[in-house]
Nucleic acid binder design. Structure first.
Lengths: 142, 142
DNA sequence: CTGTATCCTTAGGGATACTG
DNA sequence: CAGTATCCCTAAGGATACAG
């Protein structure tokens, strides 16, 4: 039987930067995982399974693997608990923050159903750059 | 036979703003259409068909319909040519610009294959806010 | 030129059982 | 807890022919 060679890269459709972003996380699930790691304090496989959108186990495993290959997410062991697996964002993953903030701002402006509080969105609009710097310095400190 | 009622809304998975963005344009094609309308001066169905990524006719028609429903793209008639159809971005669509710029910047930073010139990316990093204002004022003038 | 329609194949993904 | 494996089904999408 033919074994699929994982090291083969998907052929990319073009070298456009928008297309690169789409091929990295242009599906219905990947950005939700990144959101949970970035904003919702989730670190473990089990925690990532519990989001509102109800990702299934096989999809989550597949996406985490992809994100590791792309060096957006890193997999490590918990220092205090050797058996526990911890996922975290790499620098490349953390650099998605401005994108996440713009997505949040746009949806907050146009989706009446959004759960993001208006006060947060207002703050975002005014102090986006400072917000980015604050969160980044928080990471550097840790 | 059962007729699918187009006015039925897709049930949304959650009220998270990231999820709203994903359900608006979280697929492999939509953002490429927006890119072509926003940056590449394309206006017609035929022009939109000719991009590097080779979208097929049925997919293009489907996405344009969705984008119209979402009020991101508007369909109009060419003033000088009554038979020609013109697509353009609505204000909601133009508000995707900051997202597009962040996507471009991120890909430019991490994709060695990107076609965006480094000089453009450097300029983007330094003068993003001014760039947004310049392009916005251009639209307002037209 | 601007789409529709159809055919057909593959990829995505839900449900769930199972394993170290 | 952290995944794998399997089953099965639907949506996504390529190719292409056709229509107004």
């Amino acid at each position: 039987m033919f074994e699929y060679v994982m090291t083969e890269k998907m052929p990319s459709r073009s070298h456009c930067p928008i297309n690169y972003a789409l091929e990295s996380f242009g599906d219905k699930w990947t950005l939700l995982i990144i959101r949970d790691l970035m904003f919702n304090g989730k670190q473990s496989y089990g925690e990532l399974l519990t989001s509102d959108e109800k990702i299934s186990t096989n999809i989550l495993a597949d996406r985490l693997k992809r994100l590791e290959d792309l060096d957006i997410v890193a997999k490590g062991a918990d220092a205090s608990n050797r058996t526990k697996v911890i996922y975290s964002l790499t620098p490349k993953g953390r650099d998605l923050l401005p994108i996440m903030l713009e997505l949040t701002e746009w949806s907050g402006k146009y989706d009446a159903q959004t759960e993001a509080p208006k006060s947060f969105l207002k703050h975002l609009e005014n102090d986006k750059q400072r917000l980015i710097e604050i969160i980044r310095s928080g990471w550097d400190a840790s």
